[in-house]
């Protein structure tokens, strides 16, 4: 990955650090509240579901960006991490009757540990080998789940969800709000990483890992933090999925569409910036929802593939790159 040339993030204006973070959290909370109000005014149950779909990709894209965008390690196995989160939630539900919130915590722990494991792979595997290893990891996990009867094997697992959770009007609204909070947190984590020493270290790894090591960047520790954080957030994105759909099966949970979207969204929006994945995810996921409803689900995936190829070829810096000097 040493040859990857992505834009160096523009130096932030000289605001005191605490105020910058406060601005983000207040702004994000305002946007989130506005979203809930607008969707309530629309008052259609489908609005919550479509919104969930988009927000889930915001979390996934932000998670992928921490490792792929800043450190330049391309994870092809996003579906594996996400499904790890989903199935952790299923197991916790089946074993202890846990609801979605404890499920999310459990998913963060399990997927984070998995991420830590892949982090140790980066000790020896650089660049494409790491990518191929993550792809393999996803297949191995899928095989394990298919052969695991406790979670339904290839038949899938059902989750009986409550009809509604007060004070929310419907379960759809509840799960949407949960995902909204997760999205705000995930993007906030990405933003914090970018502005901290961790982010600068990861960018140094992306630009030249050997040089970074030579000048004293603790590369292994930073990579381990990044893979753990990225994995945990992907698991978190997957945990509410069985509650959202009421059903999950390996084929759906390990769908390659998650992996391709996770790569396409940050790259289209602008990888290596905290805002890029959000733009990419909102744009692509909305487009996919619209295409699924109006045309067909096969065609919408086709559009994603073409957009990914066209963007990496013609606008390698993504949409944000249009607004920034080289």
């Amino acid at each position: 990955m040493s040859a990857a040339t992505l834009p160096a993030p523009a130096l932030p204006p000289a605001l005191p650090k605490e105020r910058k973070h406060l601005t983000y959290w207040l702004g994000a909370a305002a946007v989130a509240a506005a979203l809930i109000v607008v969707l309530r005014l629309i008052g259609n149950e489908y609005g919550w579901y479509a919104g969930y779909f988009v927000l889930q990709y915001v979390v996934l894209a932000a998670a992928w960006n921490i490792l792929g965008g800043y450190a330049g390690y391309v994870n092809f196995g996003a579906a594996g991490f996400m499904a790890t989160g989903s199935y952790t939630a299923v197991v916790l539900n089946e074993a202890f009757g846990f609801d979605v919130l404890p499920g999310i915590l459990g998913a963060a722990v399990v997927a984070g540990l998995l991420g830590l494991g892949t982090g140790y792979l980066t000790l020896r595997l650089r660049g494409v080998y790491f990518s191929i290893a993550t792809l393999c990891l996803s297949v191995v996990l899928q095989t394990l789940v298919v052969n695991w009867d406790y979670v339904g094997g290839s038949r899938g697992a059902y989750i009986i969800r409550p009809r509604s959770v007060p004070p929310f009007l419907s379960y759809g609204e509840y799960i949407f709000v949960v995902m909204l909070v997760l999205a705000v947190i995930a993007v906030g984590i990405g933003r914090t990483v970018e502005m901290s020493r961790l982010g600068r270290g990861l960018q140094a790894i992306r630009d030249n890992e050997r040089a970074a090591e030579a000048v004293g960047v603790p590369t292994l520790r930073l990579k381990l933090i990044a893979t753990t954080l990225s994995g945990a957030l992907m698991g978190v994105a997957g945990a509410p999925l069985p509650f959202y759909a009421g059903y999950i099966n390996p084929e759906g949970a390990f769908n390659l569409a998650y992996a391709v979207n996770c790569i396409a969204m940050p790259l289209i929006g602008g990888a290596g910036t905290w805002l890029g994945p959000v733009i990419g995810a909102v744009l692509l996921a909305t487009l996919q929802q619209a295409a699924t409803v109006t045309i067909s689900s096969a065609l919408n995936l086709w559009i994603v593939g073409w957009m990914l190829v066209l963007f990496v070829a013609l606008a390698p810096r993504g949409i944000l790159g249009w607004f920034r000097r080289r």
Binding site: S2, A3, A4, I263, L267, W306, V312
Partner: peptide
């Protein structure tokens, strides 16, 4: 033309072939 010449083959080139793979499969 798009990647190797520019020296972008690592991240972008990988994403390019991933996209091509997806386009062919869905096609």
């Amino acid at each position: 033309y798009f990647f190797e010449r520019r020296g972008d083959e690592a991240l972008q080139g990988l994403a390019f072939f991933f996209g091509v793979m997806f386009i062919i499969e869905v096609g």
